[in-house]
Amino acid sequence: MKTRYLLNRLALIAALSFAATPVRAEPLSVGLVIPQSGQFALLGQHVREAFQIWDQSNPGIYADIVEGDDGCTAQSGADAAVAMAEAGVDIVVGFLCTESLAAALPLLTEESIPVMTLTVRADIVGEEANRLGWKFYRLAPRSGAEAEIAADAIFRLWADKSFALIEDGAISGRELVEAIRVKLEDRGLKPTFVDNFRPGQDTQPSLVRRLRSAGITHVFVGGERSDMAVIAKEADYQKLPLKFMGGDALHAPQGENPLPDGTIAVLSDGAIPGPDAETARSVFEDHGLIAEGLRIPAYAAAEILGAVATRQGHSNGSVEDLLRQSTFSTALGTVTFTDQGERREPGFVLAILRDGEFTRMSIADAAQLRQESQ
């Protein structure tokens, strides 16, 4: 009896000791395929800095970080995929361009290496990945989500207004406005006026006259920030009071003509980080960097992969299992992925221009706009 008691005590002590031992992360080998030169090299630098800074603050989580070059061509994508496979990485982050991403995905899928893009928004990439079984994860927002958020904002804020949908004739502007129109009409709301305009002009007198004739008070512009500013300037000149809304193209430097205060924009959450990004902002500031460009989205990706590595330490799940089944708290806010690798959250937020700067629209801002509409 004493022997059995002693053995039971020893087993209990061993079990408690094991339970008290902190769970260690399963070190993750991360590949970064980013532009090393050319016009997108700065964005590549942002991704590199974010991962290096996170890695320094969280030693032992990543086994290593292996870099490859994204030249934004199909050939560079294929070459980078081969290099990542030879390096034996567990997951690749990057491929900032559609061409390189599309070329790399089938090759890396064959090697069972998932890919997470920070920038590619085209819905077709996700559709093809789902159809062909590619190991694809999108932290960037889907293009279609921009129209969904814009249509919802118009429905909630402008439903009782005489509003126009206008676009600049470019593929992006035309597709955005058409998607918004369809989504609104599915909800029983039709725009008062739909039109297009010639971009890059110094003035837009005929467009503004057409808006006046249609009795328009609110305008969604599918086009560049500079074109919206010209339209707003012309409307002011013709003494036509208009309220404006636009898409993510408004996330651009202010040009010669400012946008009017109160302009609403549908912006990517990475372009206008919220309170969840404060820790990341502080970390970047400690390194003398501003949280701009791709730094916040890349930092969020580093946080996600860090959580995956940690959870692998006490789970038999693969990297993909953990990506699909987990909820991640990141600098972009809560992030979850569908079984198809798409981010469940829209990835776009409403912003409003105050004193020349876009800030996330608050509940109070939305309430004020609704009150102004009554």
Rank of each mutant, 00 (worst) to 15 (best):
K2D: 10
T3D: 12
T3A: 13
N8G: 14
A14K: 09
A14E: 04
T21V: 14
A25R: 10
S29N: 15
L32C: 12
I34V: 14
G44Q: 01
H46R: 12
A50E: 00
Q52K: 09
Q56P: 08
S57R: 10
N58M: 01
I65N: 03
E67L: 09
D70G: 03
E86T: 11
D90W: 08
I91G: 10
L105Q: 05
L105G: 03
L107F: 01
E110L: 11
P114K: 07
T117E: 03
G126A: 07
G133Q: 02
R142I: 00
R142S: 03
A159F: 13
F163K: 06
I166M: 06
E178A: 14
R181V: 06
V182G: 02
L189Q: 03
T192L: 13
G200P: 12
T203N: 14
Q204G: 06
Q204D: 00
L207C: 09
R209T: 14
S213Q: 15
T217K: 12
G222Y: 09
E224S: 14
D227E: 15
P241G: 06
L242V: 08
M245R: 04
G247N: 09
A249Q: 13
H251Y: 08
Q254A: 15
E256W: 05
L259S: 06
P260W: 07
P260A: 03
D261T: 10
V266H: 05
V266G: 03
V266F: 02
D269Y: 02
A277Q: 01
A280Y: 05
D286G: 14
G288C: 10
G288E: 11
L289C: 08
I290T: 12
I290L: 12
R295E: 11
R295S: 08
P297Q: 01
A300F: 10
A302C: 11
E303K: 13
G306C: 03
V308Y: 07
R311A: 11
H314W: 12
N316W: 07
L322N: 07
S326D: 00
D339I: 02
R344Y: 02
G347P: 02
F348K: 00
E357W: 05
E357F: 09
F358C: 05
T359D: 12
R360Q: 12
S362K: 13
D365L: 09
D365K: 04
S373Y: 03
